[in-house]
C-alpha cells in the first residue's frame, strides 16, 4: 500500500507541475497580445504599456515563466507603481485593475463557493441516491418511469433556464423568498438560508439526475447477484438486504463520481453563482473575462484544476483502500 500511495502522490505532483506549465502556455503564448487582456474594457494606451512593464510582459517568455513559477513557491515582487508590490508565496498573480493580490481575491470568494457546493452536495446525494434506490425497487412500474423521466429532464435542462424558471416561480410569482442577497451564515443565518436555498436546489436537481440513474443501475446489478439471494435466504429483513448488502456493493462508483463532482464545484459553479449573484469563484472568473483581467483568470483556472487533480488522487486512494485489487493493477 505504501508503495502504491507514494507512486500515486509522485504522479500527482508531476501532474500539478505540468498543469502549471500548461496554464502558463495557454494564457501567455496563445493570445496575440497578453497586455490587452489585463487592461479591462476601457483601455488607454498608457495603461496598456504600464501593464506590460508592471506584469513583466516585456521580458522574454522563459523569464516570465520562471518568475511565475518561482512566485508560486517563494513569492515575487511586482514593480511599476511607486513602491514594489510584494506577492508572498503562493503568488498566483496581481490584478492591477483591482489593486489586489489574486490569492486575496480568491480567498474572499471561496466561502460562498464552498457553502454552495456543500449544501448542494448534501441535497443531491440524499435525493439522488434515495430516488435511485426507490426507482430500482419499483423497476418497470410507473414510479420507476416517473423518476427516470424527472432524471432525464434534470440532466437535459440547461442550468440557467432551470434557474430562471425557479426565480420566476418562487421569487416573482409566489413571493416565497426575497431576491437572494448573500451574507455569511455567521452574520445572519436566516438571510443566508434564504439566499442559498434556491441555488442549492437548482444545482442539486442538475446533479441528482445523474446519481439517480447511477444508483438505480448499480442497485439493479447488485440485486441480481447471488449474495442477495443468500441474504434473503438467511431471512434477513428486506431493509438490511437493500441497505447493507445491495447498496454497499454498488457504492464504489457513486463515491468516485461524488468526489470528483464535489471537487469540480469547489472551483465555482459559474452559472448558478451568476444567476443568484453569489460572490463566489465562478462569478470572480466571469467578471475577469467580461472585463479582461488575465491574472485573475489564470489564478482561478490554476486553483480549480489543482482541486480536481487532488480530488482524483484522494478518490483513487479511497478506491484502493476499499478494493485491494486496484493496488495490484
Amino acid at each position: 500500500m505504501t508503495g502504491y500511495v507514494t507512486r500515486r502522490v509522485l504522479i500527482m505532483v508531476l501532474m500539478l507541475l505540468v498543469l502549471t506549465f500548461a496554464v502558463f502556455i495557454l494564457f501567455n503564448l496563445l493570445p496575440a497580445d497578453v497586455a490587452r487582456l489585463t487592461c479591462g474594457k476601457i483601455c488607454t494606451p498608457q495603461t496598456l504599456e504600464a501593464n506590460r512593464i508592471k506584469l513583466g510582459l516585456d521580458q522574454p517568455v522563459l523569464m516570465q515563466f520562471w518568475y511565475f513559477f518561482k512566485g508560486l513557491f517563494v513569492g515575487r515582487e511586482y514593480y511599476g507603481g511607486d513602491a514594489p508590490i510584494a506577492c508572498p508565496a503562493p503568488c498566483l498573480g496581481y490584478s492591477f485593475q483591482r489593486n489586489e493580490l489574486v490569492t486575496t481575491l480568491i480567498g474572499q470568494r471561496l466561502p460562498a463557493t464552498i457553502w454552495l457546493a456543500l449544501g448542494a452536495f448534501v441535497f443531491w446525494m440524499v435525493g439522488g441516491i434515495s430516488l435511485g434506490i426507490y426507482s430500482a425497487l419499483r423497476r418497470g412500474k410507473w414510479q420507476d418511469k416517473s423518476v427516470m423521466g424527472v432524471s432525464l429532464i434534470g440532466y437535459s435542462l440547461p442550468s440557467f433556464f432551470l434557474g430562471l424558471v425557479m426565480i420566476y416561480v418562487v421569487i416573482i410569482q409566489l413571493k416565497l423568498l426575497p431576491f437572494p442577497r448573500y451574507v455569511s451564515p455567521f452574520e445572519n443565518p436566516v438571510q443566508f438560508f434564504q439566499a442559498m436555498l434556491l441555488p442549492w436546489i437548482v444545482l442539486a436537481i442538475l446533479y441528482a439526475a445523474f446519481y439517480m440513474r447511477l444508483t438505480r443501475s448499480q442497485m439493479l446489478d447488485a440485486m441480481g447477484e447471488d449474495f442477495i439471494r443468500t441474504a434473503r435466504a438467511k431471512g434477513l429483513p428486506e431493509r438490511t438486504v437493500i441497505g447493507r448488502h445491495a447498496l454497499r456493493a454498488g457504492l464504489t462508483p457513486i463515491v468516485t463520481a461524488a468526489g470528483l463532482d464535489l471537487a469540480g464545484l469547489l472551483g465555482g459553479a459559474i452559472i448558478t453563482e451568476a444567476l443568484f449573484s453569489l460572490p463566489g469563484i465562478g462569478t470572480l472568473a466571469l467578471s475577469a473575462v467580461v472585463n479582461p483581467d488575465q491574472p485573475i483568470i489564470v489564478g482561478t483556472v490554476l486553483i480549480t484544476s489543482a482541486f480536481i487533480i487532488i480530488a482524483n488522487l484522494i478518490v483513487d486512494l479511497l478506491y484502493a483502500a476499499i478494493d485491494p485489487r486496484v493496488r495490484l493493477a
Binding site: 501532474m15 490587452r36 459559474i270 465562478g282 483568470i297
Partner: peptide, 25 residues
C-alpha cells in the same frame, strides 16, 4: 496523461477563461 491534463480543466470554466486569449489569436 495528456488526456488527464485536459480533463483536469472544468469544461465551462476553461471555455470561459480562454475566450479572451483564444479569440484574440
Amino acid at each position: 496523461r495528456f488526456m488527464d491534463l485536459i480533463l483536469a480543466f472544468p469544461f465551462l470554466l476553461i471555455v470561459l477563461a480562454l475566450s479572451g486569449a483564444f479569440t484574440q489569436r
